[in-house]
Write a protein that binds this DNA or RNA. Sequence first.
DNA 1: CTGAAAGCGCTTACAG
DNA 2: CTGAAAGCGCTTACAG
Lengths: 232, 232
Amino acid sequence: MNKDLLVKIYEEMERLNYRPNPAARALVNHKTGIIQVVIYNKLSAKDIYFICLMSSVIEYLSKNNYSIIVKHGYDKFSNCDGMIIMGLSQGDDIAMFKKIDIPTVLFGKTEQNVDYVDINNSQGMYLATNYLIQNKYKNIAFVTIDDNEPFCKERLNGYFKALKYNKIPIKKEKVFLTNNSIEGGQSIFNKILECAPDAIVCSTDLIALGIIEGAKRKDINIPKDLAVIGFD
Amino acid sequence: MNKDLLVKIYEEMERLNYRPNPAARALVNHKTGIIQVVIYNKLSAKDIYFICLMSSVIEYLSKNNYSIIVKHGYDKFSNCDGMIIMGLSQGDDIAMFKKIDIPTVLFGKTEQNVDYVDINNSQGMYLATNYLIQNKYKNIAFVTIDDNEPFCKERLNGYFKALKYNKIPIKKEKVFLTNNSIEGGQSIFNKILECAPDAIVCSTDLIALGIIEGAKRKDINIPKDLAVIGFD
DNA sequence: CTGAAAGCGCTTACAG
DNA sequence: CTGAAAGCGCTTACAG
């Protein structure tokens, strides 16, 4: 086909405001150009951590000419070229995803045999704890989520690892459990104070925010009187 | 069709893991079940304001069995049942949306004749400013975005309205312009100090964060030495 | 190289 | 009431 004709065709497309129908294309190509992000159970679309993840996913897929569909609840998923599952927890039924022939990646490790991506939870907490130790903090408490998720265990392990590495005795009384929210951090704060820490390592940023809020209310100055570090 | 048969059919659907193909459905129904959110020009998918909006939109549409597709750049839009355009600014070409037969709503007022939703910018700033006045602040500065967008004008008007209402003389020297970012707030802070305000009304939350940061660096205590209020 | 035909997986109007 | 056929808007293999 010669170029002049091609140009004319494009001009006419423009004039008629023609746009190919993606549904028709998807039907014949068996390819939708859509990646589906499924927000599972516990995760809220308002969770800041999720939101940050999402915006990066959107930005990346958009650049690569993929559309991204966001849904709550995996049972609602429909055909697409791939799925990213977020907010899945240990007890959830994953069998579903194995049945489907849609490529699926979980965000966050589970103990089941499914593809996933995750951050290095253990290393993150190791670095945070070790940093405090290097800066001469002696009595470092750890607050984490009262949950059996792999990432919680790993983060706790990172804390332990740093203590061991620096030959500091591990004391279970310095490990505190709460729920993953600002309120969670705040409500556990007074209890943590009982072990008179000079630093608190928080398993999540939300908990750290709660701890900071708790300190404010007690007129404890951060970082002068108490060091707080969070991670996510 | 009798119920037993219906149940059998559903069971078989389950067993075969059958799911209707939405592309085929869309093709015949002329309805995609998809609302497209288009992120325009200046807006980043990382902007916290946008992100909060987005998560509410997702939550709402998800409940109503709509899928939401997020894209950057309006030229990429494809067929869908409706579009929400975010981050459009004054100079942008809107003609496009009028040509298309897809129902479209802009987020944020423009001076062109298109459907939009927006918050009451003027009233918001009026309330913020008036609140400070009611609380005995005398010398209230205003920082806003160095931009010609309608929402900027409206917010400035709200500030003026509150002053007028309280019979406080309007002084242009107390209005400052910067760009909409934490850095923007921070960089204008010292200049604002020159008019010795006891309170600063910020046209956006990002600017307010910058102002607070600037105050911190000068060891100015908020809210003891200086009141800061933001809005978005 | 060009153009008509078949087919993607559905829904709905229509014939039997 | 049931079942076959047409058609949604594309792409691609195929006939000419």
